[in-house]
Structure formats: structure tokens, C-alpha cells
Amino acid sequence: MMGWRPPLVLVASWLGLLALLALTVTLAYLPFGSLNSTVAIVIAAIKAAIIAAFFMELWDRGPRLLIFAGAGLFWLGLLLWLGLMDFITRAPA
């Protein structure tokens, strides 16, 4: 029982997440103009993906569970894509 050690994949995920947090806060202070928000959102998506893959163990789950887990993202994608389409593409009046 005392022989338990944290799995390497979890330790690596945790350290990677903390490194990405430091990176995203640092990059937020650099003047990239409108790219700043893209960088922040992309890094957030990478962090969420690491959590889903390793903490939530999706990396070794079968296709059936991935479909259930992906359904939420699909619906969210529809909401944001169709909902924001007009705002993003309309030329300023």
C-alpha cells in the first residue's frame, strides 16, 4: 500500500499545465495586438485538452465514450459558430 507512486503521465500533465499557465500570463502582457486574445484562447484550449486526455483519461477510451464526450463540444461548436457568424463576418457599418 505504501508502494503507491503518482503515475508519471499525471505528474507530467500537471507540470505541463502549470508551465502553460505561466506562458499564457506572460504572453498576455506582450503587445501582439488582436493576436493576444487568440493566443490566450488557443492556450486555454490546449490546457483543457490535456485535462480531458489525461486527467479525465479520454486518451485510452473507446470510440463510444469519445462520441458521448465529443457531443457536448459539437453542440457548443454549433452554438458559437452559428450564433457568432453574423458578428464576426459583418463589415462595419
Binding site: T24, V25, A28, Y29, L30, P31, F32, N36, S37, A40, I41, I43, A44
Partner: peptide, 10 residues
């Protein structure tokens, strides 16, 4: 966190 705290920092 990315949407609330990070915008406008530069």
C-alpha cells in the same frame, strides 16, 4: 480565466 483575466493586459 483566459476570457476574464487576460484580455487587455498588454
Amino acid at each position: 480565466f483566459a476570457l476574464i483575466y487576460l484580455p487587455g493586459r498588454s
